[in-house]
Design a protein around this nucleic acid. Structure first.
Length: 591
RNA sequence: GCGCCCGUAGCUCAGUGGAUAGAGCAACUGCCUUCUAAGCAGUAGGUCGCAGGUUCGAGUCCUGCCGGGCGCGCCA
């Protein structure tokens, strides 16, 4: 139950009721009515702007309208007080019984607490990582991977039918360059080139992918095919090496992602799309709509690229859809640009049944957002929507000192190294402690410390403390008295302390948080929310340290104990539920 | 030069058009015979980059400036 939308519906019903009795005009627009937690908790549990929003159309003063509504709301079940404040807010305070009932909701729903029907099973495609299959993933990819995966989990929680998708760029010049790099490694493995040939080629800049990760790939290919490719012409070995390299790199990448607990529903191949004629088909569609023409682009304003010269190109009329300039679709060698293939790919996604698509990209691709959105508009005739989440850089630190990274010097830190060092759960949580469009510092020392300023620890510690209390209760009272079913029937009226009620309010905010975060596509809100829940729980715990009356377990008062265990168990459920959405395993104890 | 993102407490950052703008860290003051003090409570700290505009109401939306990051025809 989303407390806020539930009361919003009640308030709208009251407005309708007042209109029926003639006390308000009929047909008022209630769309802008909102019910939110007041910024200042002393104002109450809920604040509603209905009176201010309706005042104009109703030709009444906001405060006068607010008084009218507030009187009616007092009769609604669960409402303790309804006050008019400020310019015309209606502040509602809810009864303890109402909050106690939310605890029952949580205990009955378990991990499913917060599941929403907001998405109405609407299909939505989340595409993320989509790194070129040319080497191991780096930490930046890892951020996109976590943001995409957590967003997918969040949307699923909110009731959307989510597909997790990876687009493999296995068709362009990059994978040909990969094949050539592999070829040289292979010639060395075959003994046809001296061992230092690779280093020399790198110094001359004639190979692009210099990482050691191609060495075992070359050896595997040598083991598999032997001398077969030694005398073969390039048109034969290139596709073979490319295919072998791509397959090996994708295996590597999938392993890296699996280490993060990330698995995709669909892995789409650019090459397959091109070979099946998808690009031609998509461009024909645009051509039929008169959106493709041959023309010469204006040079970019200001700084002119060194080798710029006017050149006729095949262009897409992106300017018709909000882009600054029209965009090229074909390279001078006649092959399609990446953009052309990406148009076809997004059309393919749309045709597979996804009117809503989300792409998670690195911030360095920010310049492509407008053109891609323009293309989606054009090719779906306005029926498709594309949201792009750009992820900023991750700064790797160790004890506050930047970790210097250089591909050439071999000091490059891969995603896999980081995940192996700090663990999957730590990595995932930390990646969500910033908005996707803000840069993020990742400090090896800080993220594994067990201190207050490590958010992962702080949240896990709250869960572990809940688990600890439940273990003690189980040992003292036995399984039957601490089951969720029994706790849901406890005399929750015993929970009267303000810290206890505040924690319940915090827990009851989870369904609303799921819905609002899903609507704006912002999974980081979950990590922030969990820190707030943890904070409320740690506070209550410590008060029990100081005042024995507030401790959870009282063997001389089983009724009180059951009520408090219901609160502890509900906290554990909500924290675990939140962690599950972002793919983090809750811990039972800290070591 | 153009486009996108960002600018909030000393530092790192939250803040879906609502009221007196929040949290953590750092600083200062307290709290451990107890279910894990690996923690908690309190004090102090602000021209929300600047200037206009829209609105009953702007940190939030619009315009212009200032400052930082990213990108800018055949790389993906």
């Amino acid at each position: 139950m989303n407390v806020f939308s539930w009361f919003r519906d009640r308030i709208i019903a009251e407005v309708t009721g007042l209109a029926l009795t003639g006390k308000l005009p009929a047909g008022l627009d209630t769309a802008r009515i909102g019910v939110e937690p007041p910024r200042d908790p002393s104002h109450g549990d809920l604040a509603c702007n209905a009176a201010m929003v309706l005042a104009g159309a109703a030709r009444r003063k906001p405060r006068e309208l607010a008084v009218l509504l507030a009187q009616r709301l007092l009769a609604v079940e669960g409402v303790a007080t309804a006050e008019v404040a400020g310019p015309g807010f209606i502040n509602l305070r809810l009864t303890p019984e109402f909050w106690h009932a939310r605890l029952v909701d949580i205990l009955k729903a378990g991990a499913a607490y917060g599941d929403s029907v907001l998405g109405a099973r609407q299909p939505i495609n989340v595409e993320y990582v989509s790194a070129n299959p040319t080497g191991p993933l780096h930490v930046g990819h890892g951020r996109g991977a976590v943001v995409g995966d957590a967003l997918a989990g969040l949307l699923r929680k909110a009731g959307f039918a989510v597909t997790r998708e990876y687009y493999v760029n296995d068709a362009g010049g990059q994978v040909d360059a990969l094949a050539r790099s592999l070829r040289l490694r292979w010639l060395i493995a075959a003994g046809a080139e001296p061992a230092d040939a690779f280093a020399r080629a790198q110094a001359e800049g004639t190979v692009q992918y210099g990482g050691d990760y191609l060495v075992p790939v070359a050896e595997a290919l040598w083991q598999q095919d032997g001398e077969r490719w030694l005398a073969a012409p390039e048109e034969q070995w290139l596709p073979a090496f490319r295919g072998f390299a791509i397959e090996s790199m994708m295996r590597l990448i999938r392993d890296d992602l699996a280490a993060l607990g990330i698995h995709f529903d669909v892995i789409a191949s650019e090459r397959a799309l091109v070979e099946q004629g998808g690009v031609d088909a998509a461009l024909h569609l645009l051509e039929d709509r008169g959106l493709i023409y041959e023309g010469v682009l204006e040079p970019p304003k200001g700084k002119l690229p060194d080798d710029w010269e006017p050149r006729p190109q095949v262009l897409f009329r992106a300017t018709g859809y909000g882009d600054e300039t029209d965009r090229p679709l074909q390279k001078s060698d006649g092959s399609w640009t990446y953009f052309a293939a990406d148009i076809a790919y997004h059309l393919d996604k749309f045709r597979r049944g996804f009117p809503v698509m989300i792409d998670v990209w690195g911030a360095d691709h920010g310049g492509y957002v407008k053109r891609m959105q323009a293309a989606v508009q054009a090719i779906t005739e306005g029926c498709g929507a594309l949201d792009v989440k750009l992820c900023q850089l991750v700064n790797l630190l160790d004890g506050g000192e930047p970790v210097r990274m250089s591909k050439r010097a071999g000091t490059f830190v891969t995603l896999r190294e980081v995940v192996d060092r700090v663990g999957r759960d730590v990595f995932r949580f930390i990646m969500l402690t910033r908005k996707n469009d803000a840069p993020l510092d990742f400090d090896f020392q800080k993220v594994t410390e067990q201190t207050r300023d490590n958010p992962v620890f702080y949240v896990q510690y709250a869960h572990a403390r809940c688990s600890s209390v439940m273990r003690h209760a189980l040992a003292e009272l036995g399984g039957k008295t601490v089951s969720d079913e029994v706790l849901a029937g406890a005399s929750l009226g015993c929970l009267t302390d303000s810290g206890e009620i505040d924690l319940i309010k915090q827990l009851a905010a989870w369904p609303r948080l799921v819905e609002s975060a899903a609507l704006v596509h912002e999974p980081h809100r979950i990590a922030f929310y969990l820190q707030e829940v943890a904070q409320a729980f740690h506070g209550l715990w410590t008060r029990g340290k100081e005042n024995a009356q507030l401790r959870f377990i009282h063997l001389d008062d089983l009724q009180l104990t059951a009520a408090r265990l219901a609160l502890v168990r509900a906290t554990q459920i909500v924290v675990a539920s939140g962690l599950a959405v972002i793919g983090v395993e809750p811990v039972e104890e800290l070591r």
